[in-house]
Design a protein around this nucleic acid. Structure first.
Lengths: 211, 211
DNA sequence: TAGATTGTTAATCGATTAACAATC
DNA sequence: TAGATTGTTAATCGATTAACAATC
């Protein structure tokens, strides 16, 4: 069942930012915060913050605000950071390696179990303690390990084939860094990181600014 | 002057996708396309496509559609891809190296002139033909070379300092990969690529899907 | 000319902001 | 209790979709 079916993507994409600032408050030993103070941190309006959070439950208390600790735990649960999702990275070039090296994902419960790569020069190497395996071993590996997420960091020419393969292996979620729109069943979750889109937007804004 | 001041960010962020599909059509030697056909490719509605493009000019022709060639050139101009913007990458870890290696940016006119790095083991190395220089040489380098964009791929602890430095060197646009909200003058353009936000969103959707 | 498809206005939908009663 | 701040409804704003006259 889809508990938060009616929550819009606009809301969901704000949650990570709330979560980040709440974690910063925890590091600073702040124990409570009002929507107004949180609005000054995040740049969202207090009204929006209250409405966003109320999509998921009444975490606050009138006259008091929100408990930072409670909010952190609730946001983590909402975002699924308590699930300990497992991942494989397909494509062990610089980008795949960068992600494998990125500690903050595992701090949030994500575990990268292996990288897969076509280039024989890379197969057998390790990134931290994560082995780079042969691309052809994906089927075998996914049979022996439960994998939740496939991270695709291959060149765009290979991305669709890789997507087809990991979906056929039963993986339900793809974090796609290749600049193409993957064609997959609609029950497969695809989250794209499109660097071209981001850079072109920057370029547009820069052009506007200079004129 | 800000020519397209009144155009919303929602529109702007769709332009790169139009541009990508238009380029695919060019590779397939398609010379004309209607908003309806483009809607099938991109997933946006035909109405939206016509309205989006009309923010920038009437590129189409009644009864005919859009010339693919014209649309490509116009989109490139709108996005500033004809400007040949120059960039430096600050942080020469895997992510910085991945971006330096990414050919498709220079195919669109972006030139990476140098990487900068603190780690002495990396200084002096080259990524393709791009040299990794000492972080302390940024001032000197920006005095001798006109740089439009700073790409920040350092750990988050250093990102704000780096931002301050590149802004003081006269750089007006930052492509930021560190998971923090940089504090800069409001006339400086910052485009963030927030991998945490993206992964958490995927995690949220995956959790919803599985339940 | 008839058919196709744009450019553009009007209608709808959804998201954000404002307001305030509820309540800690 | 009085003050503060939430949760939630209503008002506003903006973005998307529908419709159609203009025109190639």
């Amino acid at each position: 069942m889809n508990k938060y079916e009616n929550v819009s993507m606009a809301v969901i994409r704000r949650l990570p930012k709330y979560y980040r600032y709440i974690n910063e408050l925890i590091e600073k030993d702040v124990s409570r915060i009002s929507s107004y103070e949180l609005s000054k941190l995040t740049g969202f309006t207090a009204s929006q913050i209250r409405q966003d959070l109320n999509n998921f439950g009444g975490f606050g208390q009138q006259g008091y605000g929100y408990s930072v600790e409670v909010l952190k735990d609730e946001l983590a649960k909402i975002l699924g950071l308590d699930k300990g999702y497992s991942a494989i990275i397909v494509g062990a070039g610089n980008l795949g390696q960068a992600i494998a090296n990125y500690r903050s994902f595992e701090d949030r419960g994500f575990r990268t179990l292996a990288l897969f790569e076509k280039n024989p020069k890379l197969i057998g190497l390790k990134i931290r303690d994560i082995e780079i395996k042969d691309l052809d071993d994906i089927e075998k590996f996914t049979r022996e390990n439960e994998i939740d997420i496939a991270i695709i960091t291959t060149p765009k020419e290979q991305a669709q084939d890789v997507a087809d393969k990991v979906v056929s292996c039963g993986i339900r979620a793809i974090w796609n860094f290749a600049p193409i729109d993957l064609k997959v069943d609609k029950d497969i979750i695809v989250e794209n990181v499109d660097l071209n889109e981001s850079l072109y937007t920057l370029s547009f804004l820069l052009k506007q600014n200079i004129k």
